[in-house]
Simulated assay, not measured.
Amino acid sequence: MRIDFWKMHGIGNDFIMLDDRNKAIAGYIHYSDLAVKLCHRRFGIGADGIILARNSDTHDIRFVIINSDGSEPEMCGNGMRCFAKYLYENNILVKDEMKVQTLAGTVVPRIEKTQGGQVESVCVDMGVPKLVPDQIPFVHEGDTAFEVPIETAQGALSVSCVSMGNPHAVIFVNDLSFVDIETIGPMVENHPRFPEKTNVEFIEVVSESQLKMRVWERGAGVTLACGTGACAAVTAAHMSKRVGRQVGVHLDGGDLDISWDGAGKHIFKTGPAQTVFKGNIEI
């Protein structure tokens, strides 16, 4: 079976975009097996994950994402921006504002276009951050879980836990350059207090309006960016009075602008989405 694809990235977080509204791909190969095959950076196209467009009975479209290891996360902020651009520029869904079905619930991306009509950036309503430990999920008896110590082989670490439809553990550090992400990341990701594992964000506070961030993503390892992680980081930083309401987050792959008015409010993320190349491949 030969399929068409777009290779895209959102500030370095890269994806293989596929249209499976007719379920032809699903009828031929399991999505997990396809993701492992296509995402391999030596024997495949290479990506952090695949994203598929599917029809929805309740929304404009359905978003399905599979990580490079074959696992299925609930949502991906960088992937959602790429998804919106892919839909718009392929005439699959030509709307400035889209209602998208995800495993994390309804997500609403809004297209921002150039004068030529191409998608320049996307602002995504990421919903309301969840702070209750059971909803993250994180094993903790308090009403929220900010700067909670957990024991690891590297000693005690302080984590601030947030769900953006997927779980996040935010760790504040003095200097990102001294953090061994490839050692600490998987320890926290697989910690028994995170029953569904977790994404891990390492955050250096630059000012009340600027954060630097590196990320270990659940099911993908070190990536250049994580949109839901940036939202979780701003949530944790704002709740601990480290930053204000408008925050620029600087990641290895580029920058995101995050806007949040506080607990119970929707959080908004704006950033670019870019097409790397288009092609087709035999699967």
Rank of each mutant, 00 (worst) to 15 (best):
L251R: 06
G254E: 15
R242T: 07
R214M: 06
V222D: 06
K212L: 15
N199L: 02
H250K: 09
S207M: 10
D255L: 10
K212C: 15
H250D: 13
C226K: 05
G248F: 10
F194K: 04
V206Q: 04
V200I: 07
G248H: 13
M213R: 10
E204C: 02
K197T: 04
H250S: 12
A225K: 05
E201T: 08
A230W: 00
D257P: 00
E217I: 10
R218Y: 02
A225R: 04
E217K: 13
L224H: 05
V243H: 08
L224I: 05
A230G: 14
G227V: 01
V200L: 04
M239C: 06
S207K: 14
A230Y: 00
V200R: 10
K241I: 01
L224T: 02
A232L: 08
E196F: 09
V247I: 09
A233P: 00
Q210S: 12
V247F: 06
A232P: 07
R242L: 13
F202E: 03
W216E: 07
L251S: 15
F194L: 07
L211Q: 12
G229A: 08
R245I: 13
T228Q: 05
L211G: 13
V200C: 06
A230D: 02
H250A: 13
D257A: 09
M239H: 06
V222Y: 11
S207G: 06
T198R: 07
L256G: 09
N199F: 00
Q210T: 11
R214Y: 01
P195H: 04
G254T: 12
G229D: 01
F202V: 03
A236K: 02
A237S: 13
E196I: 14
A233F: 02
A236M: 04
A237I: 11
G219K: 02
V200P: 00
V222A: 10
F202R: 04
K212S: 15
E204S: 00
H238M: 14
Q210A: 10
G254R: 02
D257G: 01
A220W: 00
T228C: 08
G227K: 02
G253H: 11
L211I: 14
R218W: 01
Q246D: 07
V249W: 03
Q210H: 10
A233E: 02
F202S: 03
V247P: 02
D255Q: 09
H250M: 10
G221P: 03
P195W: 08
V206I: 13
R218G: 03
C226H: 07
F194E: 01
A225Y: 10
G229H: 08
A237H: 03
E201H: 11
P195D: 03
A220F: 00
K212A: 15
R218F: 08
E217S: 11
A225V: 11
A236V: 03
G253Q: 12
A225I: 14
K241D: 09
A236W: 00
